[in-house]
Design a binder for these strands. Structure first.
Lengths: 146, 146
DNA sequence: GAACAGACCTCAAGCGCTTGAGGTCAAGCA
DNA sequence: TGCTTGACCTCAAGCGCTTGAGGTCTGTTC
């Protein structure tokens, strides 16, 4: 049975070391075994599996409480499959929404950056005031859309 | 000159009341005038313009320090236009990246939700173990991609 | 005139981490 | 043998707000 240091566990799970300690502290993963002399954490392969799952969920913006539920259900197997699916589809919807919003923002940012660019080059008299007015309009548009 | 309560300002800027107080506290917007008797905040149209801009920036994930810079530059007009454009294009890149990542996650979530769905219906003997194995593989894939 | 509702105030704590300070432990080297 | 290095430890504070507690002010109703 291979035991991993927190550094190894961090690399393989792609979670930072403080995050690993944090997840243990709040009980998202069970207490990790310690080295007797040094008191340092030693992770088992089993722990790594758990971390892998948590890392995925986190990457998708799943909140701590949902992670907790998901982990608990994982142990139950088939009987809790429905709830697992619900958690995931709920987040899939959130992400779809988020993508749509970001795409609006992106268009806005590009338009606006273009404006400052024109202003930077200073395209003639009256340009300054006109650009300023367009800025305000764009901001208002964005406020309505967001 | 119309003066607005914090509630009105919140509605029109789409920033929560605590956020308005917070932005004032950290100096993102200048100190807001107060009603003499009650001590309640009274927002001017000028303040609303500032809030509008901040709301846009925030909606796009621009950090506080960049907001501060952006606001300061706004007052300078043409001379700081280059820096304004930089802030915006920098964030545009971030958002593009974010969209790409989210799209990967979305595909992953859908695949995974489908798996739990199959497991829920229980498609026969041996299915349980097989699904479990696929779960682990998917998690690893996601860990690499994210 | 007293009681109530509603909008506002300030202050403190919570979220999910990250960052930093300050200290311990274990191994390698002069 | 003492000294350095590096990986680890714990604890506290910071991020950008949000939420909640507890109190004040103003206006309305009985």
């Amino acid at each position: 049975m291979t035991l991993l240091t927190i550094q190894n566990a961090s690399q393989r799970s792609r979670l930072s070391e403080p995050t690993l300690r944090y997840y243990e502290e709040i009980g998202l993963i069970g207490p990790i075994a310690r080295d007797e002399r040094s008191g340092h954490r030693r992770y088992r392969e089993q722990d790594l599996d758990d971390l892998q799952v948590l890392a995925c969920l986190r990457a998708m913006g799943v909140g701590i409480e949902d992670m907790r539920t998901y982990q608990a259900n994982r142990a139950k197997g088939r009987s809790a499959a429905g709830e697992q699916r619900d958690i995931l589809t709920r987040h899939a919807k959130r992400i779809e929404q988020e993508i749509a919003t970001l795409q609006v923002h992106l268009r806005y940012l590009e338009a606006k950056a273009g404006l400052w660019d024109a202003r930077d080059r200073g395209d003639g008299p009256g340009e300054e005031a006109a650009a300023s007015r367009v800025h305000v309009l764009l901001d208002q548009l964005e406020a309505v859309l967001s």
